[in-house]
């Protein structure tokens, strides 16, 4: 029994945190003068209540899977990649440009190329902070945050300077039909991107569990000096893990362009890169944990929309619940300590 508990310890703590967050959220909703039952029932209904709502939840989940995974990968080597937002923007931009300029290629070639180009753009952007960390010790938190601004603004600049569609809107032209990911259900905007996301989770999971390289990266994250002592080039591993992390963050942008927006538009993200940090924390930096955390956040987002529309409860309460989840995920360390006494 204790063994089983030990095995699922992380999941149990995360679930407790979510429950606690909803409990405190209920108190807040009640204090704000709304009906708790109505709030949570429209929230649930909005996120899972119909096929359409379900598709919207998963649509909102996809970018969070990628950005959450990106943060988790960084953590494996002990690095905190907060640059997901910028990496995602460059990924989105590069994918859009690739798809537009190679539009003559058939879909089965164009889609993988555009995806990979988006990933590489993210990689290129995360390489620099990784390299600076390895060579000079520049803290990656500072450099990745700064690189966000540079990345987002660079994409906007290039767009306005060279690739803008005629008209008042800062956006590229639509990418060709062949580069668009097919929808699973008409009008849902839920596309094959969900399979790409799950596929990437599987790959990353295998990478860290079953490959030498993945193990080396983790060793660096656990104890850098020990890793060096064991003959692992920790600098190389850190740069590498940052690049993989950036690649995955870039894919968040690629799949939004190819699945949802069908073009690059400035300011398209409501902060997926930053929400990814919360997703990684809740998912305990485990690939499959990230999946469930992303679904929860996607559901809160989607359900929050219905809650705002039909129960007239401000969206901000949803953001508060998201914050509480994170707070309580951090709190189990306290709870653990209390229990052990």
């Amino acid at each position: 029994m204790i063994k089983i508990l030990k095995k699922y310890e992380n999941s149990i703590y995360s679930l407790t945190a979510i429950l606690l967050a909803f409990l405190v959220g209920a108190v807040l909703i009640h204090l704000s003068g709304f009906s708790v039952i109505k709030a949570y029932s429209t929230l649930f209904d909005g996120a899972f209540g119909s096929v359409f709502n379900l598709t919207q939840t998963f649509m909102n989940t996809i970018p969070l899977i990628f950005t959450g995974l990106a943060v988790a990968i960084g953590f494996k080597s002990g690095l905190f990649n907060i640059g997901g937002e910028g990496q995602m923007y460059l990924g989105a931009f590069t994918t859009a440009i690739t798809a537009i300029y190679l539009g003559f290629l058939p879909g089965y070639i164009l889609i993988p190329i555009a995806l990979i180009m988006g990933g590489f753009a993210g990689s290129a952007w995360s390489f620099l902070p990784g390299y600076l960390k390895a060579k000079t010790g520049a803290h990656e938190v500072v450099t990745t945050i700064m690189m966000n601004y540079i990345g987002i603004l660079t994409a906007s600049y290039l767009l306005l300077k060279y690739f803008k569609e005629e008209g008042p809107i800062p956006q590229t032209v639509l990418i060709p039909e062949s580069a668009r990911l097919p929808e699973l259900i008409e009008y849902s905007r839920l596309t094959w991107a969900i399979f790409i996301a799950v596929f990437v989770i599987i790959i990353i999971d295998i990478f860290f569990k079953r490959t030498k390289l993945g193990y080396k990266i983790q060793t660096v994250g656990e104890n850098r000096s020990a890793a060096e002592y064991a003959g692992i080039n920790s600098n190389k591993m850190m740069v590498l893990s940052m690049m993989i992390s950036g690649f995955v963050a870039g894919l968040a942008g690629s799949t939004i362009v190819m699945g949802v927006l069908h073009r690059f538009i400035t300011n398209f993200s409501p902060g997926y890169g930053f929400t990814g940090i919360a997703v990684a924390v809740l998912g305990k930096n485990k690939p499959w944990g990230v999946l469930f955390a992303a679904i929860l956040f996607g559901a809160l987002q989607t359900g929050g929309i219905t809650m705002q529309l039909f129960a007239k409860i401000p969206m901000d309460l949803m953001v508060i619940i998201q914050g509480l989840v994170i707070l309580f995920v951090a709190a189990p360390i306290l709870i653990k300590k209390l229990l052990r006494k």
């Binding site: 919207q56 008042p168 009008y187 949802v260 398209f268 989607t302 929309i305 705002q308």
Partner: peptide, 30 residues
Amino acid sequence: AEPSAITEYETYLAQFANSKKYDLIISIGF
């Protein structure tokens, strides 16, 4: 509805339209 992202426009418009409750749905912003 106050969307926080461009990707949310479609969701909000669809939710309003789907409810079949409205005589008119207005979009603000190009």
